[in-house]
C-alpha cells in the first residue's frame, strides 16, 4: 500500500476476541509475529482482509482487528481471489493449513498460484489434522500412525514448496514458528511481492504431533539443520558455515563440506531465476524435516498479476467501445419496430 497510514501498534491490530488455541500451540507465535509486523508495514487496518478456511489455523482472522472472513474448508483461496480481483486496493491474506490447502482445497491453491492473484498465503504446516483430533495429513510422513492410520499411513506426502512451484508460484518461501524475526522477514517479503505469495510455516502442534519439526527447528539443532537461503549468496550452513550445497553436473543438489569443495564451488542462490528448476531442486533437498532443510525465499519472480490484468481488459474495452450503454446492448441483436 502506498497509502500513508496513521502509525499503529500491535494492540491496534489485535481484536477483542479471546484466542482459543491450545496452550503452547505454534499458532500463537505466528499470530504475534503478524500482529507485530503489521504496524511496520505501514498499511491500514480497514484495507486489510484475512480470509481463512477450516482448521485450527483458520481461526486466525477472528484474532486480527481487520476485516476477515472465516469461510469453509479449503475454499479460502477461491473466496480471496474474488475479493482481491474485484478490490485491487486491498491487502488480502489467506491463512490456511496443510489439510485445508493441500487436501480438500488443493485445487483452489494451485489455481490461485497459477493465476498469480495478489494474495499472501500463509500455510501453517503441522503435518497433522488438529481440529478433528489427530488424523494424518497430506504432509504427514509415510508410515504415520494416527487414529485413522493405526497401521501407518500409506500415502507419499506433499512437499508444499514443491507443489507451489509446480503450480507456477511466483513467490515461494518457508519459515518456522520458532523464529519470529525470520517469520517477519519472510512475511514482509511476501507482502511486498505483487502476485500470489506462498509461505509455508513449520508450525508445531503440541497436542497431536508434538516435535514434528524439532529435529530442524529446535534451538540446539537449527544451525546444523536449517539451510538459510539468501539471494546472491553461496548456500552454506552450520555453526561456522562449514556445510554447503553444490549442484552436480546432472543438476542434482548435494550437501558438502565447504572445506572439501571450496567456497567458490558452492551453489549461489538466485531467487529471481525465471526457470523454477533451481528452486524446485532446493525444495527436494530434504526428504523431510529430519534432514538439513532450506528456509527462506526459494523463488521471487515478476509475473503479470491476475486482478490487474482483468482490470486492464475493462479499461481497454471501454477505450474501444466506451462505457456500456444498456439501451444499445439490448438492441445489439437487431431490432424491429411495431406501430
Amino acid at each position: 500500500m502506498t497509502d500513508v497510514a496513521v502509525p499503529t501498534t500491535r494492540k491496534d491490530w489485535t481484536s477483542d476476541q479471546e484466542v482459543r488455541w491450545c496452550p503452547g500451540c505454534g499458532d500463537y507465535s505466528i499470530l504475534a509475529a503478524v500482529q507485530m509486523l503489521m504496524p511496520e508495514l505501514g498499511v491500514r487496518r480497514e484495507n486489510t482482509v484475512f480470509v481463512s478456511g477450516i482448521g485450527c489455523a483458520a481461526r486466525f482472522p477472528y484474532y486480527m482487528n481487520t476485516y476477515g472472513v472465516h469461510c469453509i474448508h479449503g475454499r479460502a483461496p477461491a473466496i480471496a481471489t474474488g475479493l482481491a480481483v474485484s478490490r485491487p486496493d486491498l491487502d488480502v491474506w489467506v491463512v490456511t493449513g496443510d489439510g485445508d490447502a493441500l487436501s480438500i482445497g488443493g485445487n483452489h491453491l494451485i489455481h490461485a498460484l497459477r493465476r498469480n492473484v495478489n494474495l499472501t498465503i500463509l500455510l501453517f504446516n503441522n503435518q497433522i489434522y488438529g481440529l478433528t483430533k489427530g488424523q494424518y495429513s497430506p504432509t504427514s510422513e509415510q508410515g504415520k500412525v494416527t487414529k485413522s492410520t493405526p497401521f501407518g499411513s500409506l500415502d507419499t506426502p506433499f512437499d508444499p514448496i514443491s507443489v507451489a512451484l509446480g503450480a507456477e508460484a511466483s513467490f515461494a518461501a518457508r519459515t518456522h514458528d520458532m523464529d519470529r524475526k525470520h517469520m517477519q522477514e519472510v512475511f514482509r517479503r511476501a507482502h511486498a511481492h505483487r502476485g500470489t505469495s506462498f509461505v509455508e510455516i513449520y508450525q508445531n502442534c503440541n497436542v497431536f504431533n508434538d516435535g514434528a519439526f524439532e529435529q530442524v527447528t529446535g534451538r540446539d539443532h537449527r544451525a546444523e539443520m536449517l539451510i538459510p537461503l539468501e539471494h546472491g549468496q553461496p548456500i552454506r550452513f552450520g555453526a561456522e558455515g562449514q556445510h554447503g550445497v553444490v549442484m552436480d553436473s546432472d543438476g542434482s543438489l548435494r550437501l558438502v563440506e565447504v572445506a572439501d569443495v571450496g567456497e567458490e564451488n558452492l551453489l549461489v542462490h538466485d531467487e529471481h531465476r525465471a526457470e523454477p528448476a533451481l528452486a524446485f531442486a532446493l525444495s527436494r533437498l530434504a526428504r523431510g524435516p529430519h534432514e538439513p532443510t532450506p528456509i527462506g525465499v526459494f523463488r521471487d519472480v515478476d509475473r503479470p498479476e491476475y486482478g490487474e490484468a482483468m482490470g486492464r481488459q475493462i479499461v481497454e474495452a471501454r477505450q474501444r467501445r466506451g462505457s456500456g450503454d444498456l439501451a444499445e446492448l439490448l438492441a445489439s441483436g437487431g431490432t424491429w419496430t411495431v406501430g
Binding site: A80, N107, S323
Partner: peptide, 29 residues
C-alpha cells in the same frame, strides 16, 4: 461485455466459481 465494468472469471471448478462471487460480494460487488 467488459465495457460495462463486468468482471468474469472462469474458475477452476463450480465451487471456486461461487467462492469467488462470495469474495467479491464481501468486497461490495
Amino acid at each position: 461485455q467488459k465495457h460495462f465494468g463486468v468482471r468474469t472469471m472462469q474458475a477452476e471448478d463450480e465451487i471456486a466459481g461461487i467462492g469467488a462471487a462470495i469474495g467479491a460480494a464481501f468486497g461490495g460487488a
